[in-house]
Simulated assay, not measured.
Amino acid sequence: MKIAIHGRNFNESARPYIESMFGELARRKIDVQLSAAFRSFLDEQNIQHRSHMVYGCPDELCDARLVVSMGGDGTLLETISHVGKRRIPVIGINVGRLGFLATVSPERISDMIEALENNQYKIDERTLVKVESNIDLFEGRNFGLNDFTITKTDTASMITVHTYLNDEFLNSYWADGLIISTPTGSTGYSLSCGGPVLVPHSQNFIITPVSPHNLNVRPLVVEDSSVIRLEVKSRSNNFLVSMDSRSRVVDEVTELTVSKADFTARLIKMRDDSFLDTLRSKLSWGLDMRNRL
Rank of each mutant, 00 (worst) to 15 (best):
P183R: 02
G23R: 01
G96T: 02
F38V: 08
H201T: 15
K122H: 07
K269V: 06
G144W: 04
A265V: 00
I3Q: 03
E78W: 15
S172E: 12
T103M: 09
N11K: 14
G99L: 06
S35C: 06
V258W: 01
N134Q: 01
V258P: 05
N142D: 11
A64I: 02
E24C: 02
F205N: 13
Y121D: 01
T127L: 08
H52E: 07
N214W: 02
N171G: 05
R39N: 14
L128G: 06
E139I: 15
K2C: 07
D147Y: 04
N291F: 11
Y55D: 05
K2P: 09
G194Q: 02
R65Q: 07
P212D: 00
V258H: 04
S274P: 11
I30N: 02
R290F: 10
T79V: 13
I207M: 09
S20G: 05
T187W: 03
L287P: 04
R218S: 07
G23Q: 02
V197G: 01
N238W: 04
F41Y: 12
V197M: 05
S242R: 09
I135K: 13
G194C: 10
T75A: 08
I109R: 03
D277F: 11
Q48D: 09
Y164T: 03
D31T: 11
S110I: 01
L116I: 13
Y17S: 00
R65H: 09
P209H: 01
V249E: 03
I18K: 07
R141C: 11
A156S: 15
H49W: 02
S186W: 05
E12M: 07
V129N: 04
D288C: 09
G99M: 01
H6T: 15
D43Q: 11
K260M: 06
S35E: 10
D288L: 08
S211A: 11
S35F: 04
M53A: 12
E255M: 13
I3M: 11
T257H: 07
Y17E: 02
F205A: 07
L128F: 06
V217Y: 01
T257V: 12
A36K: 15
G71N: 08
H162M: 14
S242A: 12
M289N: 13
E231I: 03
T153I: 08
E168G: 10
R87Q: 15
F239G: 06
S190K: 02
S202E: 05
S110Q: 04
S284F: 14
V221H: 05
